[in-house]
Amino acid sequence: MNAISPATGETILNVDNLSLEFFGSSGTVRALDDISFSVKRGEILSLVGESGCGKSVTAMTIMGLLPKHGARVQGTVSLAGESLLNASEKRMRSLRGNRIGMIFQDPMTSLNPVHTIGMQIGETVRRHRGVSWQRARARALEMLEFVRIPDAKNRLSAYPHELSGGMRQRVMIAMALACDPELLIADEPTTALDVTVQAQVLELIADLRAELGMSVILITHDLGVVAQHADRMLVMYAGRIVEQAPVEALFAHPAHGYTAGLLQSLPGANVHERGALAEIPGAVPRLDKPMPGCSFAPRCAFRTEACEHPLPPAVPVGPDHTARCIHTDAVYRAVAGTDIVKAWT
């Protein structure tokens, strides 16, 4: 397979004005609030933010894995021009694992403990390609070798508990890629893995993107991973996209108070005299209450009374760089030339 240049210009996934509400006994929770973004073919797009900001639920909405009752989705999600929100469950089953692959958060629990590795990968191939078990098993072996699992032939007959966490994660990647998807969603793909294995898994995803021309949505908390592997990033907070930009531009010119706070909290970026890491005070707000103004304002060092007014549209900061903040200039002036920016540029 020949390597290609990332981000060829063709849009493979388009999300436009996507909102999501869950209904429960305690009221309505607005988990996603009017988010829009696109993914180009061959691009790695990273979604970052604290737990509870909407990253994983965005992925689940794209995959059509939300419960049919108790939730309301508005907006549009399209894969190469085909609407996913309006697709039938039968159609989504044909797309999941075929044109869209997904690596779920926990490799320790995502595999079926009573089936062999070969059966689980082979079943994916049989379902979408309609081939015999013999051919499906051959494809499973090919994929295990492709993701660099040693002694791949014998691993086909192994059960998940016989593999290490890193090997199980590679099996999840092999399963997600078995049918050559156009888009891979990797939701915290290095959860519970040691640092060495994390690096190996992330390098593998980057290599496969280059070899296959595959687009990747990488969900992570680790901005170091984003800086090293992603082309563009979306910063999410309380179900909203607060900033999005090419990675280099965003790290060099953060324009939202939340982005600046995330960068400042990284080890080595800006350590206090006592050696303690900087932190963002407070917590992510409850999503079952209306938030007409900036949802980050109660925690923001740049807050003014104007932040309580209805949010303006995303403000252009630079080429392909927008931030949903009325104090973008003040944020950048405060961090320009500091250790926050120097550490990542």
Rank of each mutant, 00 (worst) to 15 (best):
L177K: 12
T28E: 08
H253Q: 13
M102Y: 08
M119K: 15
D320W: 06
L183W: 06
Q105F: 08
K342R: 13
G122V: 04
R41E: 14
G122Q: 06
Y258L: 03
E243P: 01
S132W: 12
A71Y: 00
E50P: 06
L250C: 09
D194L: 08
A301L: 13
P246M: 03
R93P: 01
V341W: 01
S94I: 00
D207I: 03
S56P: 01
T191E: 09
P313A: 11
M119D: 14
W344Y: 15
A334K: 11
V15D: 05
G101W: 04
E279M: 14
V125Y: 07
G54I: 01
A158G: 13
T61Q: 07
G239I: 05
I219G: 04
L79Y: 04
D194F: 09
P312H: 09
S215K: 02
S88Y: 07
E248A: 14
D320P: 03
Q264D: 14
T76L: 05
H256Q: 05
I217R: 00
V235E: 01
T124Q: 15
S157F: 14
H229W: 11
N2G: 12
D180Q: 13
L85N: 00
S94M: 08
A31H: 01
Q169A: 12
A238H: 02
M172D: 08
R333Y: 09
T8H: 13
G97Q: 02
V147Y: 04
R127I: 13
I280A: 10
P181E: 11
P310C: 07
R240M: 09
I149T: 11
G49F: 01
A297Q: 12
A87P: 01
